[in-house]
Design a protein around this nucleic acid. Sequence first.
DNA 1: TATGAATGAGACTTCATTCAT
DNA 2: GATGAATGAAGTCTCATTCAT
Lengths: 203, 203, 203, 203
Amino acid sequence: MARTRAAEIAREVTGRELLGAALEVFVEKGYHATTISDIVRAAGVTQGTFYLYFKNKADIFSALLEEYRTLIISGLFDVDVASVKTRDDWLRLSDRIAGFLLDHIKTHGEFMRLFIAETTTIGSCFVDEANAFSSGIMREICRLIEHGICLNLLRDIDVEAVALSAFGALKEVVRQSCFDEGTASAEALIPRVIRSQAELLLK
Amino acid sequence: MARTRAAEIAREVTGRELLGAALEVFVEKGYHATTISDIVRAAGVTQGTFYLYFKNKADIFSALLEEYRTLIISGLFDVDVASVKTRDDWLRLSDRIAGFLLDHIKTHGEFMRLFIAETTTIGSCFVDEANAFSSGIMREICRLIEHGICLNLLRDIDVEAVALSAFGALKEVVRQSCFDEGTASAEALIPRVIRSQAELLLK
Amino acid sequence: MARTRAAEIAREVTGRELLGAALEVFVEKGYHATTISDIVRAAGVTQGTFYLYFKNKADIFSALLEEYRTLIISGLFDVDVASVKTRDDWLRLSDRIAGFLLDHIKTHGEFMRLFIAETTTIGSCFVDEANAFSSGIMREICRLIEHGICLNLLRDIDVEAVALSAFGALKEVVRQSCFDEGTASAEALIPRVIRSQAELLLK
Amino acid sequence: MARTRAAEIAREVTGRELLGAALEVFVEKGYHATTISDIVRAAGVTQGTFYLYFKNKADIFSALLEEYRTLIISGLFDVDVASVKTRDDWLRLSDRIAGFLLDHIKTHGEFMRLFIAETTTIGSCFVDEANAFSSGIMREICRLIEHGICLNLLRDIDVEAVALSAFGALKEVVRQSCFDEGTASAEALIPRVIRSQAELLLK
DNA sequence: TATGAATGAGACTTCATTCAT
DNA sequence: GATGAATGAAGTCTCATTCAT
């Protein structure tokens, strides 16, 4: 029925507007400082409407996080480990990852920043989301390193320790890119950080 | 005067109690979720008393951060870079740093946890504290690496990028040690992470 | 839309109720002694509701003052100076002013009382309101006296000084009418005070 | 005993200091905005000490008012009505009163201002003090006018009404002198206002 | 007398959430 | 589905006052 259809669309639209507005406000003021009132004002709807779509602030934030996880993980899955054969492939791969990250920061940096900031807080209700995210990336990194070892490209290393280091390095450089004022220099560092980690691992 | 003396002591004691209680509650519930009311309850004093000692929640949190910075920086200054001469010295130094960190986590893990968690929040009033802290540590790491290069111990590397990586690695492994459920295994990782980073850098 | 209409009415009603309740409580206890809590209790709404309508206590007080200014100024503009030609007109005019004031006290005495009492407090945020009010009335009085001089009805006088005196006289007699226990006698004085001032000025 | 004597003096001194400090703070911030804490800080003593001398804020304010009443009433009693015989005496007397007021405003203007402001507030605990003061002055004015009528100097007037007017005029001119920014011009008005009132009354 | 730490009542204000329309 | 007025709990903060020393 056209009626139901229209209603569905309306529902979809308002929901989208709320999510968009929420993202905007969260990014600007942080999770704790934003109020439902801020969100609905930004979305151009009223208080009551909010509760037709979300249970509360945590609920809409979770929804945003979920969207984000989907987004970045599909991005990471595009990286094709199998095609790496030689030393040069290895370096090229690291450059490609750096490129992906840079692009991602440029297009979704605000979101990334929000995510990093709000999920590491003590008492955060989003620990599960954060963990899912971290372990997803760690898995990728491990897979990469193990593949390199199989090919006899890499030095004799403590895989787990090295993967953890690499993850920390990534996280920190991203953090700096997202948070620090002098973003430019921090962004410039990303390829260098990833490249130098890659080189250190090579035989 | 005896009375003045007594008052002085009382003042000192209550101030300590408030700081201690605040640390405890902050660590348990996080900065945003803890209320002044929580703190005074834990300290065994009344609301009014709190305001004799601190302006507000941010003020007592700042006081805690400051205490912590003093604590850890004095610990780091004990590391004697000059005595490092050979490859073995280098590895021993890295072990010593790992040891220091482990001890530190055991004795002041709460502080560390609180610090790491709460200073990366968007809209945090503590960005300056966080940056002061980070750059202090980065400086130490750079000094170490440059010293190693001077001695011709280390490979040809991008110092800034590598120092940033090392810092990120440290931070992540510490974070996992402080936060994750299976703390034991995470703690076990600290020496391995630091050691493997050190080895990668060696020629 | 019916709902919007209902909401509009509700909004209007509650706002009126708050203003009315505030006037009542302010008059009874004075500005400083009344709390928001008093006002909302008198208005039959809850604390939160108050803040949907006014920023704080000073805000609702300002709103009251503004209402009052509008009220009395429109009353004063009704006085028609131009029609005064003879000695008798002059005396009749003074009687008419006295009548207006008496009526005003009877119908809006609370407003007047509140206004007179609370706008002379040191540190009052309402000095501007008070001055606007005073100079408005002073202007009227000067206009009156100058008109009388033009017509050669009045003695040779220091207009500014006399207008100031007349204003002070008015204010004091009104004050006594509003505040003193034996209001009756004080009210009786108003016509006598105004009349005797008028006679003193006549040649 | 010297001991007791010294103690008495000490008591006197601290009490004076508190009164002086209180006056200063009251004048600066007004009655309601000043706290006990402000007063003791200004006096250089501690909270506890205050309560050895005064019951509460109203108590110390009352003490100040009482001091002030004594001061001004003794000033007014110096005016010698009996010596007025002629028309010129009458004008000279009015000039003398104006002079006294001007001097008084110059030396105790702050106090006057405080007094005027805080005793006319609704719910003021100082109504009695204010009334005692007003009726004292009214009595003087009536005495003056009646004396003038006895001497056949003055026109045929409604004594009560005229006295009230005169009192109001005085009060307003004083108020303007004390409160308004352009004090200079207001002060200049005092002699003119009093003089013109005196002249209007003369036959 | 003087101190000043401690109290605790109470004021102000915000905000998530509900509900009648 | 949308509205937005109303709620009321909960938090922040101030200050007059007490009391052990």
